[in-house]
Write a protein that binds this DNA or RNA. Structure first.
Lengths: 227, 227, 227, 227
DNA sequence: TGCTAAGCGAGACGGTACGTCCCGTCTTAAT
DNA sequence: ATTAAGACGGGACGTACCGTCTCGCTTAGCA
């Protein structure tokens, strides 16, 4: 990824043509839109940008980094005004995640993430660039709701974030579809209100069973095996 | 993907050596475990299986189909006993999804799904093979809970499934981590009980705003753009 | 190659369809004419003949044998009337060799021979089928000329054959061209008359040198190395 | 085929590793010697040379060209000292052709030539590389003999060349055998001296027949059909 | 007449070798 | 010293064709 060179740090030798940087990023987005990530050929990107492969590799260490850079420009600002209506804010939160998806070419995010697997630095870059920004935006919503006393304080805030985010990611990644406003509102309703008819009762039944905790033992290794 | 030919339908020509099928599937899983999906080489798989590439291509039209077939064997049965404790059953449901993940090599699912994008048939095969089975297993849980009257009947059952599933997928795909039993129980609690302190109040506030629906207009195109 | 089954030797089982033999030979010649020997595909031949590859392999053990069989039918009779004009007969002898070439598709003989190399049996079959017949025909010419006392009796008759034959083969194989009648007559003239102005003188000079035979010693291993 | 680039013509890009060129040529000759041309596998050659197939295809457009290049290196210089003994020189001429054959692996020339058929460029390359050099060497012999007045000036020099060459090629290709010195000397004797007892008489008889040229008419199309 | 054996069309088989694509790197001449 | 340019070495791909095999059926002679 490109890091700013700070205070005009002058280097010897022929200076880089900054037009190439821009042209390559432009060509990358264009190719991503038409070809997707998987079959994206850097040779083609270079040609589209009117330059050559080595010029690309001089600027970005890998296809992944290049694509991350190209996409991050597309992401832009992700904010939503906070209101007194927590339900509305939650809906807006989900819409922020959706928006983040829709701002970039389809068939890119998932293979890119897959391609970043294995290299921790790349994963971190992916997270920093594409994963965290919408989360940060939605985190404001949760903070606001908590401050207003609309959420039970014993609920872990990252759990709330996970529910809001995962709902969107799941639908987009696995079902290739967005959500209608109705579905989104239903989801928010359920999250806020819960889906049980009588939670207390369920809890009591569970507590009874927990008197004999053996039943759950076999789950422990499953739940923690991958941690 | 290899589909059973049904009622012993006899075909002309030399029959396939079923030993090669088995050896290739075995070698594929082995290679997936050591190499991952991305850099899986069919030539290496063939060699490991003691056969050749054309024998592979005769059986599976693509790397994706081969891997799907190889993984589906690993998936096996995914069931959980139903109890009277809906809370416990929900926890078990989440554990089913987790289990499904842990039964297969890491760094395979995401790139495979990414690689299936674009070809609808492949996507469908992925869904049928790896996505639907745990969902079907968990669906039993929800049916049971509904039958017992533990869930509000107005809650869409596929929404419940999505919440349970997405929580797991999100964690595994993006955070590379499983969940502890405590986290899982918290998640289930929140889903069943809801996270709001006073949902009725939130709903009333929202209803007031809906008198002026203009504020939400700008969301509409976001929410439905990808549908 | 097909060997006659002798005296109506009856075998059990379903008899071969003789129509297939004929159809395959026909298709082979046709394919040889359009495709040449090198890229001749037995699968295509089988299809052209309205049958299948195994039926071919049941009849001929190899592509080479099949082609030999197919060509031998094309060769037919190769004879020329003997006259009292030895010069004319020699010309006719060369024409016999040329005729033999022209009776079969181009781009077949050389690769077929090359393909028969290595297997002595195949080579022998090639010789028997395509090489010997024209030689036998021309041998009559030489016998006749010797009987008439037109050739010096100390000249090896196989050497004469070789000269007549090699002249043709060389031009056809390496120069892809036939010979005009003028060229053929020139060649015959030279063979019969010799190309030296004064052979006796040349012989004497050579005999002088042979007094010091050392000069030729280094040739011996060359001349006999491949024998 | 690799042609020298002439006057140190500098090209952009990474220069070829000349070690690979050499190693491949070496491996090719080695494989030709053990395997022959027909079953020569470029993958094996590449492996033997410690490189890969694409590196081969970058250098030579086809198996044929590669083999031509590999063999041409083996051919080396083909010359013979000219003496005053024309008979000896002719023997040496034949030995040059024989030598050219013996300098390269068996079972290569014929299938290679066969494989070059059809592509005029390849044929030309074959001729240039393997066919012409020994001819050129022997041409010197004929020029010398003519200059010394040992050959009748009305004899076409290319006819002489053809006789010397074809004798060797025929023997090697079709009879898989070299010639003894005695056979070679006999052949040269016959060529120089002629094989007729009384050529003048034969010519007269022929001239008589030519008064009725009809007898030869049917040959005309045979002799020129392939021209 | 029923049995046995071989050939039949059909089609896929196991496997060799092919020729190509694309990656990421290196070397050159120019700036 | 660093660029633009271009070819490089190499891993993997997906295919064409080979010669063989297995099937279910047909056709005959033998019993």
């Amino acid at each position: 990824m490109m890091t700013s060179t700070g205070p005009a740090e002058r280097r010897a030798g022929r200076p880089r043509d900054p037009g190439i940087d821009a042209a390559v990023l432009r060509a990358t987005v264009k190719e991503l839109e038409s070809t997707g990530y998987q079959h994206l050929s850097l040779a083609v990107v270079a040609e589209q940008a009117g330059t050559t492969k080595p010029a690309l590799y001089r600027r970005w260490p890998s296809k992944q980094q290049l694509v991350l850079d190209a996409l991050s420009a597309n992401l832009g600002e992700l904010v939503t005004p906070l209101t007194e209506c927590t339900l509305c804010d939650f809906v807006d939160g989900i819409l922020i995640f959706l928006d983040a998806f829709h701002r970039m070419p389809p068939n890119v995010l998932a293979p890119l993430l897959a391609d970043c697997d294995g290299d921790p630095e790349l994963r971190a870059a992916f997270m920093r660039t594409l994963f965290d920004p919408p989360r940060a935006a939605v985190d404001r919503v949760i903070t606001h709701a908590l401050a207003q006393g609309d959420l039970r304080p014993d609920v872990d805030r990252s759990l709330v974030l996970d529910f809001l985010a995962s709902f969107v990611y799941y639908r987009v990644l696995f079902q290739h579809e967005s959500a209608t406003m109705d579905e989104i509102e239903s989801a928010v309703s359920v999250l806020l209100r819960g889906m049980a008819t009588d939670f207390q009762r369920l809890l009591e039944i569970a507590d009874v069973r927990r008197g004999n905790p053996a039943v759950h033992e076999h789950h422990m290794h499953l739940a923690t095996a991958g941690a």
